[in-house]
Design a protein around this nucleic acid. Structure first.
Length: 418
RNA sequence: GUGGGUGUAGCUCAGCUGGUUAGAGCACCUGGUUGUGGCCCAGGAGGCCGUGGGUUCAAGUCCCAUCACUCACCCCA
């Protein structure tokens, strides 16, 4: 009988790692609270159509990476591969815009994409992110970017770089698409098959190419900023100056076009030098057309998503072991067992972390365990202690040991410092 | 979907040009202390050498296939 393994690209988060996740999640929630963002949770799966419409049929996500199936009732469903579309769907469905002119939402969630796994890329992975609806003004762009940086700085990430661009309004994108096509038409025969494909369907994404000879060709390509409307330019300039005012440094990245269809104007990406080929820990931008595309009232919005696995990778290993018991109760013999349990329970109810042996092992083994677990104190309970009414309390860091009356034990332990 | 790398103990890895009982360190367990941890010492447990086939007197070692893991491409968090 062969044992069953986890699915490729998924991973178990064992206790030696889960405390790191908890710390990251706590830092995220803390920062979100200070910036005034509230959590939203959406279902693990949605109608496939939501992503087809919201993300775009021609995107890699929709065209080849979704886990989709038809359920027993004949509905086409998909495990969510990204969260902006589901959050926008919930925003529309619950008329959140009607109850408040702006909504600042965040999430921490698991996503699913069927790609070949590699360092920093998994088939089930986790993102935190925000979606801010209702304002088209640059100050929300700047706040969202500042928020992302605040989380990363808060968990001690360094070696980050923020890349910033604007892909303009839809009108600008149309103009630029034409300009880019005109420029590239003479070079068409020198382009790769995928680039030729994109030439037809989504010319902006050709800027993403990593093929050296294509990068060479694109060096002289028109810049999207050439097609900005005056409003686009004003908007982008103000985002930049607000970031300047907050002391957040960034690099202009004229070729940064996000892959998903819904983006407009501001786009940004944060990369870390601590990662491998998949070095983006955060990507986001403005999506002023998305809500309307999904059937809601025209509503501006901006958000980002950040990869938690990548953040944890970039943070590197820390050596803290998580939760260590304050006290380890060493029980000797059968008769003290009720006393050990009763004592542990009462100390725990007083807020202390208490552990005891459940394998009926020798005293030596129990002491070793107390040490290994990182307990600050050991309480030794045997027949002698039961009879005399005094337990031995040992400070495991100094080795000092003293007798404490059982009646006073609880208050005594509470008075110690941990 | 495509390419590279790697599969030997729970973990990190040795195992030379095929040669007889497959090793180390760490971790784990027991003892050295009739009821006292860390350090030290002694001992122990733990391997169909990823799987299947082939070559050979002989395969962890060579060949083929297959699977898994991993890194990278495409693309993204």
């Amino acid at each position: 009988m062969t044992s069953i393994r986890s699915i490729k690209g998924t991973q178990d988060i064992l206790p030696d790692q889960s405390h790191r996740w908890q710390a990251l999640e706590a830092a995220i929630r803390n920062t979100m609270g200070r910036y005034g963002y509230e959590e939203i949770r959406t279902p693990a799966f949605e109608r496939t159509e939501l992503f087809a419409r919201g993300v775009g049929e021609e995107t890699d996500i929709v065209s080849k990476e979704m886990y989709s199936w038809t359920d027993q009732g004949g509905e086409d469903l998909t495990l969510k591969p990204e969260l902006t579309a589901p959050v926008a769907r919930a925003y529309i469905q619950h008329n959140m815009g009607g109850q408040s002119p702006t909504n600042k939402l965040y999430y921490i969630d698991a996503l699913f994409r069927r790609e070949r796994p590699q360092k920093g890329r998994y088939r089930q992975f986790h993102q935190f992110g925000v979606e801010a609806f209702g304002s088209e003004h640059p100050e929300i762009d700047a706040e969202v970017i500042a928020l992302a940086m605040a989380v990363f700085n808060g968990v001690g990430l360094s070696g980050l770089s923020l890349k910033l661009n604007s892909i303009g309004s839809p009108q600008c994108r149309g103009d630029y698409r034409d300009a880019l096509r005109d420029f590239l038409t003479p070079h068409l025969n020198n382009l790769s098959e995928t680039s030729q494909n994109r030439f037809e369907k989504n010319p902006l994404r050709m800027l993403d190419t990593k093929a050296p000879h294509e990068i060479e060709i694109l060096k002289d390509a028109p810049n999207i900023s050439d097609c900005w409307t005056q409003d686009d330019k004003d908007h982008f300039d103000e985002v930049c100056s607000l970031l300047d005012a907050m002391g957040i440094s960034y690099d202009l990245a004229p070729n940064l076009v996000r892959g998903l269809d819904y983006y407009t104007r501001t786009t940004f990406e944060i990369t870390s030098t601590a990662l491998g080929a998949q070095d983006a820990i955060c990507g986001g931008g403005r999506y002023d057309g998305l809500v309307e595309t999904l059937g809601g009232k025209s509503t501006p919005g901006i958000g980002f998503a950040a990869g938690m696995e990548r953040i944890l990778l970039a943070m590197g290993d820390d050596t803290s072991t998580g939760h260590e018991p304050h006290i380890y109760i060493v029980g000797l013999g059968d008769t003290v067992r009720p006393t050990v349990l009763q004592l542990a329970e009462s100390l725990r109810q007083n807020g202390l972390a208490v552990a005891f042996d459940v394998l009926r092992r020798s005293m030596k083994a129990q002491m070793r365990e107390a040490n290994k677990a990182g307990a600050k104190y050991a309480i030794i309970m045997g027949d002698q202690e039961l009879e005399s009414g005094q337990a031995e309390v040992k400070d495991l860091s100094t080795g000092d040991q003293q007798k404490v009356a059982l009646d006073d034990l609880s208050s005594h332990m509470n008075s110690l410092s941990f």
